[in-house]
């Protein structure tokens, strides 16, 4: 039977690249986005036409926790791979003053994922196999003054994924944590990106596919970020707090 991959956040540029990476390998796809608008319909059709795989679509909102149980129970069959890739950078300055914006950042990067993955993990554990991929960020490794709301949500997500991996290991369910550095997408459009440290969505997609194949636990994209973040984590706090990052 054709294996399937659920993309939570198929409107994301990285999510789309991941969808193509799995379609190229013959996976059927289930695309979940906030709005099943024309771009989503075209994406679904294009995946099916180019790669001859089955593609389904559904609507979800990471913040609509009440709707999550029905959504996850409605998945038949349960996908082999789930990629949780939705996210929201938000307006940090605004979010420090306006908790509505802050709440959107926390939900899109942390609590929304927790709500959905709790339910998906339970079903996968029962089934006894599967892979859960969470797209977190290097921003979660250390809080910085310019984006610590987003960063702390990602930190929470990273810690959650680590615990989940531990919890599901014996059940045969694998959990991958993806930590992109900078990626050229609509989230970063207009921001100055450091060329050599910046990945394309396809690079992230290749890394995700490889991580699923090889059952890798934590992947940085581009890989150089593993070293950079190690150095940043090692900076003593009395130095770090003085930096303008």
């Amino acid at each position: 039977m054709q294996k399937t991959c659920l993309i939570l956040g198929s409107g994301s540029d990285i999510g789309q690249a991941i969808a193509y990476a799995f379609a190229r390998q013959g996976y059927g796809l289930l695309l979940a986005a906030r709005a099943p608008d024309e771009p989503q319909q075209h994406l679904a059709a294009d995946l099916a036409i180019r790669h001859g795989v089955a593609v389904g679509s559904l609507a979800f909102d990471g913040e609509d926790y009440a709707a999550h149980p029905a959504l996850v129970q409605g998945l038949h069959p349960l996908p082999d791979v789930v990629v949780a890739v939705f996210g929201y950078l938000g307006d940090h300055a605004r979010a420090t003053a306006d908790f509505a914006e802050c709440g959107r950042i926390l939900a899109a990067n942390y609590t929304g994922h927790v709500s959905l993955l709790n339910l998906l993990a339970a079903r996968m554990q029962q089934r006894g196999h599967g892979t859960l991929v969470g797209v977190s960020s290097v921003a979660g490794e250390r809080g910085r003054q310019s984006n610590y709301l987003y960063g702390s949500a990602k930190a929470g997500f990273t810690a959650y994924l680590s615990g989940l991996r531990n919890a599901l290991f014996r059940a045969g369910v694998h959990v991958v944590t993806v930590k992109p550095g900078f990626v050229r997408t609509k989230m970063t459009a207009g921001l100055p990106l450091p060329g050599p440290l910046t990945a394309a969505p396809d690079d992230v997609a290749r890394a995700v596919w490889r991580a699923c194949q090889r059952r890798q636990n934590v992947v940085y994209v581009p890989g150089i970020w593993r070293g950079i973040m190690l150095a940043i984590r090692l900076l003593p706090e009395f130095v770090f707090k003085r930096l303008r990052l």
């Binding site: 771009p39 319909q41 075209h42 994406l43 059709a45 294009d46 036409i49 180019r50």
Partner: peptide, 12 residues
């Protein structure tokens, strides 16, 4: 206006 991102075949 670049159309290169409008790259979906939606009907065949």
């Amino acid at each position: 206006v670049s159309t290169l991102r409008w790259n979906k075949i939606f009907y065949f």
